[in-house]
């Protein structure tokens, strides 16, 4: 009797236990290395006592202190606003131009070498140039971001539009699908994997440009604040700024990943189907 009851209890517990251990393993996968790294940092800074290497605890405490509501409103949010504004504008322009160029072989042939050259120019050199043009203001910072992030988006859109399946083009012609519906249902959707790939590259360039345009030519914003901390040897503050930029990059990448998963749901499905899953 007691043996039987132990058996059933075991049987009931076993799947639960293995589930729990799976979750524990996942958590370990997720957290072990970050914890080890933070620990190692702590140890290193405690042992060496280097002035430029504050402990993680110090950085965390400074982070909370430095990036309070006031600085958030004055420096961080305007920077993020410009970043998103510039990136959006660059994406719209890049996709629009890319569609036009992708559809016209002749125009493409004429402009391709020029575009290839513009794409090859490292975008940061645009910062001094546009400062010259426009002085130091919001328009200039936006222009820097737009003119840097537009190229990968533009060129990838061209590739994507060129790669639209000819059978789908014929299908649309047969069924009289044209005009706006043709553009949105056929061309843009079909090019969306390349457009998203271009936008991902454009986003990381936009972040770089947001930061350095403020480091190089500004008296406010995230980049400016961080470089000021470094200049005044406010080391834990500087580290907290680096941490904030890191979190910003990570957060935007996560958001973009979510958007990408939505937009390219069909594309991932097609690929999985082709793999035979």
């Amino acid at each position: 009797m007691s043996a039987a009851s132990t058996d059933t209890r075991d049987a009931a517990r076993r799947p639960g236990a293995s589930g729990a251990s799976r979750i524990a393993l996942r958590a370990l996968h997720l957290l072990l290395l970050p914890l080890v790294l933070i620990g190692a940092w702590w140890l290193a800074s405690a042992v060496t006592g280097l002035y430029y290497l504050p402990t993680p605890g110090e950085i965390a405490a400074t982070f909370v202190e430095v990036w309070g509501a006031e600085r958030l409103a004055a420096d961080v949010l305007p920077s993020i606003g410009r970043l998103i504004g510039g990136f959006t504008l660059g994406s719209v322009l890049g996709v629009a131009l890319g569609v036009v160029l992708g559809l016209s072989a002749r125009l493409r042939a004429v402009l391709e070498p020029v575009l290839e050259f513009f794409r090859a120019i490292p975008p940061p050199v645009l910062v001094p140039l546009l400062m010259l043009f426009m002085g130091v203001n919001t328009t200039m910072k936006l222009a820097v971001i737009v003119s840097g992030c537009i190229w990968p988006i533009l060129l990838n859109t061209i590739e994507g539009v060129r790669a639209v399946d000819p059978v789908l083009i014929d299908t649309c012609r047969c069924y009289g699908v044209r005009g706006r519906r043709w553009l949105t249902t056929l061309v843009l959707r079909s090019a969306s994997p390349q457009i998203m790939a271009g936008m991902r590259q454009g986003l990381s360039i936009a972040i770089i440009l947001m930061v350095i345009s403020e480091m190089f030519a500004s008296s406010s914003g995230l980049g400016y604040t961080i470089i000021q901390f470094q200049r005044s040897f406010a080391i834990p503050e500087m580290w907290s700024g680096i941490l904030l930029l890191g979190l910003l990059g990570f957060g935007l990448s996560v958001l973009f990943g979510l958007a990408e998963r939505r937009v390219l749901y069909w594309y991932n499905g097609v690929r999985a189907a082709a793999r035979g899953e």
């Binding site: 990381s204 930061v211 350095i212 500087m238 990059g249």
Partner: peptide, 16 residues
């Protein structure tokens, strides 16, 4: 986590 950190964030550290 580390991959999307913009490398320009390291500029102050590099100068230091």
């Amino acid at each position: 986590f580390l991959r999307p950190i913009p490398s320009v964030a390291l500029i102050p550290l590099a100068i230091l």
